[in-house]
Design a protein around this nucleic acid. Structure first.
Lengths: 199, 199
DNA sequence: CGTCTATTTGAATGTACTCAAAAGCGGTGG
DNA sequence: CCACCGCTTTTGAGTACATTCAAATAGACG
């Protein structure tokens, strides 16, 4: 069953009866995207929270020079959405794209709200994961203000260990905030610096 | 009564009876800090959420070169805490300092949890403000990856209009992520560019 | 195989930084 | 009230990290 993962990740934070689990599952819609499919585009209103059960998505923006900046990756077991758009129901600035063939579970905003009403424990669950998410964006912001590109790369590796060798380097560069050219030179330097670990 | 502001800011999001309001108020401890006092220091465990009723605080980190980076300001009507430390109850990396004489209301972690239990509406309230906070840190991260220092300064002005003329420029520089020297040159340039607004 | 994209390399450039020093500003005590 | 002190802000000159643009190479996919 493809819903094991999501249930497991929820019950790490809150306790649910079997009926509650089933009710929750009944609100989800499974969906499959192919590599390079767009789950959400810049300017659209985000109507779902997405939970990745297999594959990988990325959330990114495009700046006024046409450069992409990666806000987050969502490998298996992660949630993703354009939070701004989802909360306000206004057009967002985030693009969400499949980096490979990816299976997701969709939870619509209206069903999520219904869920808060039906099973108040979910209010707590989403509060907790939002809190954790907040902390990591705060930390990433501090890192972008304090650390060198190389140190930010190491943080990327700690955060997304499964992606280090699967992701195009261009995407990693767009996440840590450097150009692909600079990222390439940086990696060469890291090798010659005696640190022969490829993370 | 110094609690009008906090009640008003809460009831913008959730509905409370008078008894609930009073119960909530009873959990708060007022406290006064003087300019330059530290509310929280790097390495301590954060035990409270702080709501500013007058004055202004700032949350900042110090990097391994001794440079300060401002995560957030908390003028009147804003909450502040070291979320990482508050959630995990481990030593944090944030310093919180009073930029002027400041009055705050303290809500201890244990009382906050009790509050979730006593008045589940507060679970919702803190979920909502955490969501909003998340969105703005995401946006700020994107801005740091996409925008010039000048554009980031304009965003600072939109976010903290009340602080533009009261805050030492050094603090603004540490928020937008440039050196005080560069910020000074930047402002001179902005004037000569014909944009004579001082925001 | 050929095409398209990703990655690497090179050379020149620029934005923001470092270090040093001067100028401004505010508060405190004599 | 003025003088001094400490801190902030500005200015100058040299520097470095990361970028831009261009081109070559390598990989992936149909």
């Amino acid at each position: 069953m493809s819903t094991n993962l999501i249930i497991e990740s929820i019950t790490r934070h809150i306790r649910l009866s079997n009926e509650e689990k089933e009710h929750f599952i009944s609100l989800l819609q499974p969906k499959i995207y192919k590599r390079k499919d767009f789950i959400l585009e810049d300017g659209q209103v985000c109507k779902y929270s997405y939970f990745v059960t297999a594959g990988c998505l990325r959330g990114f923006t495009v700046d006024h020079n046409g450069f992409e900046h990666v806000l987050n990756f969502a490998p298996t077991g992660w949630w993703i959405a354009d939070m701004y758009s989802l909360l306000t129901q206004k057009p967002g600035i985030l693009n969400i794209e499949a980096l490979e063939n990816t299976e997701v579970l969709l939870l619509s905003k209206s069903r999520q709200e219904k869920l808060y009403h039906d099973i108040p424990q979910f209010e707590r669950f989403f509060r907790i994961i939002t809190e954790n998410s907040l902390v990591s964006y705060q930390q990433r912001l501090i890192d972008n203000l304090s650390l060198t590109a190389e140190e930010r790369y190491h943080n990327f590796c700690r955060r997304y260990p499964s992606l280090i060798n699967t992701l195009p380097k261009k995407q990693i560069a767009a996440y840590i905030g450097v150009t692909p050219e600079f990222f390439s030179r940086m990696q060469r330097q890291m090798l010659t610096k005696g640190k022969k670990q490829q993370d």
